[in-house]
Every structure is written in C-alpha cells, then in structure tokens.
C-alpha cells in the first residue's frame, strides 16, 4: 500500500514536470520584437553602472545605454532587479533575455555565456579611507584586512595580488560592494578592491570619506553585458551586439562614459581571448 502511493506520487510528479518540456522553444528575437519588450536582469547596487539615485530613481550607465539600445531595436526595456548572485542562475532559467550587470569578461564566464561588446574597462584598483595615510600605493595593503564583492572577478584579482605581497593580505568577502564600502567607511577594513570605474565614482561622490589608490593593478580587463549561448537566443543577441557597436561607432557610448565615469575608455569591439 505504502509503496504504491510512492509510485503514484512519482508518476504524477513526472507528468507535471515533464509535459511542458515538449513545448517548443521560441526564437528570442521574434518573442522580444513581437512583445516590444526586452527584459534585462540587473543588480541596482553597482554604481555608476546601475543604482538607485538619491531621489529614488533607477539610474546609471545601464539605464542610459539600454535606453539607446531599446531605441535602436524599437523595443522598451523592462528591468528585473535581483541580488548579483541570483542574476546568472535566473538568466539561465530564462527569467529575462539578458544581463545588464555588467560583468567582467573572463575566460570562465566566456565559456558559459556570450558577452556583448565591452562597454568599459574593469581593471582592479583599491579604494581607501581619505584620511588613511598608511596606504599610498597598492602594495601598502600587505598584512592588512581588505574587502571585495563575493563572486566578482575583481575579488579573484585582489586575492592573487594579495598572495604576491610579503605577508599576504586577509580578504573578506561581501554579498555586495556597497556593504564593503560601508565597512571601509566604518574602519572595519583597510581597503576595498573593485573595478576602477566603480570606485572612482564612489570616491567622487564622497571625497571626504573615500580616496582611490593609484595605479590600478592586475590584468587589464573589460565590462560587458551577458547573454546565454542557447541557440534560440543568438539572433536576439546578434541584434543587441550590432546596436551596441553602432552606439559606440557614432560616439554615443563615449559620451555616456564621460557622463558616468568622468572619462571615456578605449575598448575593443569584441574580447575574443580574455586575459583573466
């Protein structure tokens, strides 16, 4: 009796879960253009790329640049906001069409995902407290406790850099970069490692609290938007790719970079062989 009920339950579960598998995967470009909406997953805790500004509005390079991409493709942009560690799993689950993180283009990620053309440089630099004179160059963090965002490429670079220093560094991982900045301001850690555009923005917003430690260190890397390698997504991603290159070629991308980072970056059209 008991065994039969277990078998019944399993068969039922199989039917419920298995039936929809037979559904045909629709081409993503057709779906997006017919709905007129491109769904983009992002984390609104990545200033100046993507954040909620002091008036409570969703702002940043992402909002402006995807606005342009939407114009090029004739679609509206719908944002889905998640904590960063949930973004890539939800992309694979098909909860949105692409990711507007952006994310650092790395070998491991490029194997699993398709990257759009780079939109900014992502090389790592350190943020310190403005009144901390003990850190003048990146090497001065030797023996100190520093922080970085969990599962970020910059964290890996920071760790590798720390190992190369005499005495090493202790690295604390944070769920989000903002928590790391808050701990730095509170004096719990000596520095935060993150990409130069991010920390330059943070320091420019709070010059009394934070300062950038020059120069950046580690391998030169770039930020790009992410899509999947699913066959049904490729035509859509080709269209986004083309839109970004057009926006870059006519100078709109450089303008947006100046607006949000204070400087324009010289980025390649595609990163075929990431150094990281």
């Amino acid at each position: 009796m008991k065994r039969r009920s277990v078998v019944q339950a399993l068969v039922g579960l199989g039917l419920v879960l298995g039936l929809p598998l037979a559904a045909h995967a629709q081409d993503a470009l057709e779906r997006v253009t017919s709905a007129g909406v491109l769904k983009v997953g992002t984390e609104t805790a990545f200033a100046p790329f993507d954040f909620i500004d002091a008036t409570g509005e969703h702002a940043g390079l992402n909002v402006d640049l995807f606005g342009e991409i939407g114009k090029e493709m004739g679609v509206d942009i719908a944002w889905v906001e998640l904590p960063w560690d949930g973004v890539l799993p939800a992309l694979e689950a098909g909860q949105f069409d692409m990711v507007g993180g952006p994310a650092t283009i790395t070998k491991a990620r490029a194997e699993r995902y398709r990257f759009m053309p780079p939109i900014a440089e992502a090389t790592v630099a350190l943020l310190k407290r403005a009144d901390d004179d003990s850190i003048q160059k990146p090497e001065d963090i030797a023996g100190k406790l520093v922080g970085g965002g969990k599962s970020s490429a910059q964290l890996a670079q920071l760790k590798a850099f720390g190992e190369s220093l005499p005495g090493g560094v202790e690295v604390r991982e944070y769920v989000g970069n903002n928590e790391a900045y808050a701990d730095l301001a509170a004096g719990r850690i000596a520095a935060v490692g993150n990409s130069l555009p991010n920390i330059a923005y943070v320091a420019s917003q709070q010059p009394d609290v934070f300062a950038v430690v020059q120069p950046p260190f580690g391998t030169k890397s770039y930020f790009g938007y992410i899509g999947t390698k699913k066959p049904e997504d490729q035509k859509l991603l080709d269209a986004v790719d083309a839109a970004i290159l057009k926006i870059k070629a006519d100078g709109r991308l450089a303008e947006l970079q100046k607006k949000w980072f204070g400087t324009a970056f010289d980025t390649p059209d595609h990163v075929t062989d990431p150094a990281l």
Binding site: A45, F51, A54, G56, G176, V209
Partner: peptide
C-alpha cells in the same frame, strides 16, 4: 531591499 538600495545611494 528598498532600504538596502536607498542606504547605498544616499550613504
């Protein structure tokens, strides 16, 4: 989440 977002943008 809203508190986190606004805490981050207003410091």
């Amino acid at each position: 989440r809203m508190a986190q977002n606004l805490a981050a943008s207003t410091y």
